[in-house]
Write a protein that binds this DNA or RNA. Structure first.
Length: 298
DNA sequence: AAACCACTCAACCGCATAGAT
DNA sequence: TATCTATGCGGTTGAGTGGTT
């Protein structure tokens, strides 16, 4: 299909924005909103393409942009989110208020990637580099276990949800009744949970064993069985929900990012430093407890 | 002081995709 | 359903800057 250029390239300015241009753009958007980016430059009297205007606004001029260096917490969060979401900068940026995808991408490429490399970790997989002499790692890293616990928690939440829906009210699915299971499922249905579901297609032929959590929750209508899924290039055995892997639609409340973030931050790490990265290199003796405690609340 | 190098980050480019027609 | 359009996203580039030789 033919594709028209986003703007008429002839006579349009490129390169760094001048303060005057910034002023014009900000004034126009404050007065009229951005509306259609394609038509904005003409309406505002700017010799720029709409794409350039949008980028300038979203990455620099937007009033809620948080400028200045990243804090240690923000950097830690970026690394953790990158381990789960990969190079999905926009999704990562959504978890850091005031930070843009471009800013995070730059942070990653200029600082964090190197930091991981210097620690002998592959910045793409967050696993120890083979050349680091520690390639032979334990079958269950914290990341893998963390993912398995996510999955277990989801299954347990689903089962309890199913029980409660029968016990309390048929209107549960309409959102009238809220429970903590619902809380978890909202996380599961968020961007973060989606990242787990999309990592690799589930192959039912590779059924291996059943997760401990599924034993206690098999009273629901959900037919639980287990499967092997892949996480960061490794295999992890998890319990899954029958033939419908994602039984509840995304029409539950969308804004679960804070909760999801909290869950992610439950990852067993130390306080302010980056030693949680070094854990990948160590002996994996520490058991993650964050999710266990969360699940126990259900 | 000048040349060189490394680094940062704003901006561009092309592709993917959702929504409109 | 097919095609078109606008927008968003991720990869990449290159100008500017500061440090080192």
């Amino acid at each position: 299909m033919g594709r028209t250029p986003c703007c008429d390239k002839i006579g349009l300015k490129k390169g760094p924005w001048t303060p005057e241009e910034d002023e014009v753009l900000v004034a126009h958007i404050k007065k009229n909103g951005h509306g259609s980016w394609r038509t904005l430059p003409k309406l505002a009297g700017l010799l720029r393409c709409g794409k350039s205007c949008r980028l300038r606004w979203t990455n620099y001029l937007r009033p809620d942009i948080k400028r200045g260096p990243f804090t240690a917490d923000e950097e830690k969060l970026v690394i953790q989110l990158h381990a789960i979401l990969g190079n999905r900068w926009a999704a990562i940026a959504a978890q850091l208020p005031g930070r843009t995808d471009n800013e995070i991408k730059n942070l990653w490429n200029t600082h964090l990637k190197k930091r991981l490399l210097s620690m002998g970790l592959d910045p793409r997989t967050h696993e120890p580099l083979p050349s680091y002499g520690l390639a032979k790692q334990a079958p269950s890293s914290p990341t893998t276990r963390h993912m398995a616990q996510w999955e277990s928690a989801r299954v347990e939440a689903e089962a309890r949800l199913s029980r409660e829906s029968m016990l309390f009210s048929p209107s549960f699915y309409s959102g009238v009744v809220k429970t903590e299971c619902d809380h978890f499922l909202r996380i599961w249905n968020s961007e973060i949970g989606e990242a787990f579901r999309n990592l690799a297609p589930l192959d039912e032929s590779t059924i291996t064993s059943q997760s401990p959590c599924s034993r206690a929750t098999s009273t629901s209508s959900a037919l639980l069985k287990s499967s092997t899924n892949s996480w960061g290039g490794k295999e992890v055995t998890v319990a899954i929900h029958g033939s419908d892997y994602s039984p509840y639609s995304n029409d539950l409340e969308d804004d679960s990012t804070d909760s999801a973030l909290q869950l992610l931050l439950d990852f067993p790490i130390s306080d302010d430093d980056m030693s949680f990265l070094e854990e990948n290199i160590d002996s994996y003796s520490q058991a993650p407890i964050g999710l266990v405690s969360m699940v126990s609340k259900f």
